[in-house]
């Protein structure tokens, strides 16, 4: 049994090493200024918020916003490093100090607020809807009970899907896999953020599909920052407020092919009135 004891000893050491890694970082604004570069976690597979254009550059609504914030903080929108993140690692990247801020389709939830701080909310995003073939007769969430529906691992609504709606969730790591699986009929629909699915429907490949089940909620979206760093949060909020007042967000809606939302227009008006 000495071998077993040795294994346990090594495991305990590994655990201790794990625990040391989680110290709190403060003074992000100073760090960013000293470094001369803002490191931002963005999506690179999520039209229109953050995606790769034909040239292979990461662009999008939130990428433009992140660049604007970099310009306000550091004087140039090129003083930025864009780190591609996914839903399942973005908060870990932030809390571990690998990025300074998240601008990656981050919905504001009470659970998340326990772990990170949110910037001012800048988009009101529709929650998840379900993409399915045109012939599908489903129209309500309750009708999905017991059915296999594709999804994405780490989505905040996955627990609701399985526990409340009784869906058999087939969750993938990335969207391309889920789209492939839907086309393969591995699932009867794909539950994902409505905005993305709406964009997908514009592609000719997806002409025979529709949004079968409409979103059950609308959720504000905001940037994510490390908890308790008030100085940095205020600086970022100020930059976002300025972008709103200048009507930048409305311009980005146009640039990235998004339908103009009342929410963003109202915020722009309010921000402009405040200045």
């Amino acid at each position: 049994m000495t071998g077993f004891k040795r294994i346990m000893g090594v495991s305990a050491l590994a655990l201790a090493a794990f625990c040391v890694g989680s110290t709190v970082v403060a003074g992000t604004l100073e760090n960013v200024k000293a470094r001369g570069k803002l490191v931002v976690g963005v999506k690179n597979d999520y039209v229109p918020y953050g995606y790769l254009n034909d040239k292979g550059d990461v662009v999008g609504f939130e990428v433009s916003l992140a660049k604007y914030v970099a310009k306000e903080l550091l004087g140039s929108e090129d003083k930025i490093e864009l780190v591609p993140v996914v839903a399942s690692n973005r908060i870990e990247f932030l809390t571990a100090g690998r990025i300074d801020a998240i601008f990656a389709t981050l919905g504001v939830t009470a659970e998340r607020a326990k772990v990170i701080d949110f910037t001012t909310e800048y988009v009101s995003a529709a929650g998840p809807s379900v993409l399915a073939a045109k012939e599908a007769t489903l129209s309500k969430w309750e009708e999905l009970k017991g059915k296999s529906v594709c999804g994405i691992q780490g989505s905040y609504y996955n627990k609701k899907m399985t526990e409340e709606f009784g869906i058999t969730l087939v969750a993938f790591k990335t969207q391309p896999e889920a789209y492939r699986a839907l086309k393969d009929n591995r699932c009867i629909g794909f539950v994902f953020d409505d905005m993305t699915l709406q964009q997908k429907l514009k592609e000719p490949d997806w002409a025979s599909y529709k949004i079968a089940v409409a979103p059950y909620e609308f959720q504000p979206m905001a940037g994510g920052l490390r908890k308790g760093d008030t100085e940095f949060r205020e600086a970022v909020d100020k930059a976002i407020g300025k972008a709103e007042a200048e009507g930048k967000l409305i311009a980005w809606e146009t640039e990235f092919g998004m339908p103009h939302s009342d929410y963003i227009a109202a915020r722009a008006k309010a921000a402009a009135a405040k200045n």
Partner: peptide, 16 residues
Amino acid sequence: AGQIYNDTFRTLEVMI
């Protein structure tokens, strides 16, 4: 495990 730490953000605890 991935889904649980995405819901709870207790990454370290879930991984341990």
